[in-house]
């Protein structure tokens, strides 16, 4: 197997509804390509695993070829293949993992199975350079809400400081959006509505001050539903913008408070925020405010790199290959519940 000094790493991500492919060489993103099945899921109000898996199969090879074309490269230029081996939707992960193995086998190059959450952190290095060790990462999306302590991305393992005990933040967004008659995914319409509203409704900040770094959004979601129902039952109009703003404030408040507290508790001065919900305007604003007050450097990749993508997998794969990390075996399983 070749191991050049600046290996070209092909990254493949299929853990949810995005077929993502990225090409990274030595910390530089050469090209990425993305195919999304999000529109096919919209009418179901959530990602349908079988629809996602079918879409991945259709999009997999064309998306890889698109990324290679964009970079002006050929499959034989690839020096290593990295792939999200979990966590995620089992059937969706399996498509990416199988494709990655086939490329690695056909090209005679190493395979690196990587953790989806670690890849979300690693992608920031493409924009902001190497990460200080250790760093804390807050990753929030439709599938997960996690606080991680990241000692060294290439070496891993990343340590989980806290996670959602029930609904992910993005999932709560989707459910509240549905309650308010907004489309899926719920993040963008709630964010937009919230800008017109006032966050005066005192929704609960569950687990905000419980001393752990875990989150809970199920209670908040239920509280919003109860509040809205009470209004409807009384025949009163629902102040949609205020509900959106108050819900969003509660989410951003808990997430940023916990993230800053985690940095302080571990003496860390850098916070990385990623995941689809990192595109949320209130979360970004509040994180910036609180990090500045606490003397913490805040790093958030551009929105296209916050949501699921292949560049993040290639980025982490690149770090691992250059650090000489042992490759994964060809019988690497796709693990929907992969531990950190």
């Amino acid at each position: 197997m070749r191991t050049p000094a600046r290996p070209l790493v092909l990254g493949i991500e299929t853990s949810c509804d995005e077929t993502g492919v990225g090409l990274v060489r030595g910390g530089e993103l050469l090209a990425d390509a993305l195919a999304s099945s999000v529109d096919e899921h919209a009418r179901y109000g959530g990602v349908v695993p079988e629809i996602a898996a079918r879409a991945h199969l259709e999009a997999m090879v064309p998306t890889i070829e698109l990324a290679l074309d964009r970079a002006g490269l050929h499959p034989r230029d690839v020096d290593a293949v990295a792939v999200t081996s979990g966590p995620g939707l089992a059937g969706a992960l399996l498509v990416g993992v199988a494709a990655a193995k086939a490329y690695a086998l056909a090209l005679g190059v190493p395979l690196h199975g990587v953790h989806h959450l670690a890849a979300h952190v690693a992608v920031d290095t493409l924009e902001h350079g190497p990460l200080p060790r250790p760093a804390v990462a807050l990753l929030v999306s439709g599938g997960h809400s996690s606080l991680l302590l990241v000692p060294d991305l290439a070496a891993e393992p990343v340590e989980s400081l806290g996670a959602t005990v029930d609904d992910a933040a993005g999932e709560a967004y989707d459910k509240v959006a549905r309650l308010l008659g907004m489309p899926f995914p719920g993040g963008p319409p709630i964010d937009a509505a919230a800008r017109e509203g006032s966050p005066h409704i005192p929704f609960p900040r569950a687990k905000a001050g419980d001393g752990t770094f875990d989150f809970s959004f199920s209670g908040l979601k239920t509280a919003v539903a109860r509040w809205v129902e009470a209004r409807r039952r009384a025949g009163e109009p629902v102040p949609v913008a205020d509900v959106a703003a108050s819900f969003q404030e509660a989410v951003a408040d808990v997430l940023t408070a916990k993230a800053v507290a985690a940095c302080r508790a571990h003496g860390v001065d850098t916070l990385v925020v990623g995941g689809g919900v990192a595109a949320n305007s209130r979360l970004r604003a509040l994180a910036a405010l609180r990090c500045e007050a606490a003397g913490i450097t805040l790093r958030i990749p551009r929105p296209g790199l916050c949501t699921d993508n292949g560049a993040m997998v290639a980025a982490l794969g690149s770090l691992r290959v250059e650090a000489g990390v042992e490759p994964s075996p060809l019988d690497l399983p796709a693990s929907s519940t992969l531990a950190l």
Binding site: S15, E50, T84, G91, A92, H116, V140, S141, H144
Partner: peptide, 16 residues
């Protein structure tokens, strides 16, 4: 999920 082996994937196991 599709088949028995399709891996039941609830929203809770979805990634970031």
């Amino acid at each position: 999920t599709g088949t028995a082996s399709a891996g039941a994937a609830s929203a809770g196991t979805m990634p970031v």
